[in-house]
Amino acid sequence: MVKEIERAGIPVVHICTVVPISLTVGANRIVPAIAIPHPLGNPALDASEEKSLRRKIVMNSLKALTTEVEGQTVFEE
């Protein structure tokens, strides 16, 4: 899906936990996530901490979208 969105001319960032799969699939902008069943959350945290964790990942993905890349790039925090 990532590739078809990119092919349509829309920049896309892939937030995912298993980065090697994303690299194999061919995503260009990749942001690592927390865990498979909760990529943008952590049930061990309290609600406000969890939301700020989620915000951090989303902000990182926005950074990825506003960064010019040549080929596949993983945006670690």
């Binding site: 920049p11 937030i15 995912c16 799969i21 990529p39």
Partner: peptide, 8 residues
């Protein structure tokens, strides 16, 4: 203008 795609 841009897409955020999330995967589990």
């Amino acid at each position: 203008d841009a897409v955020i795609l999330t995967s589990t």
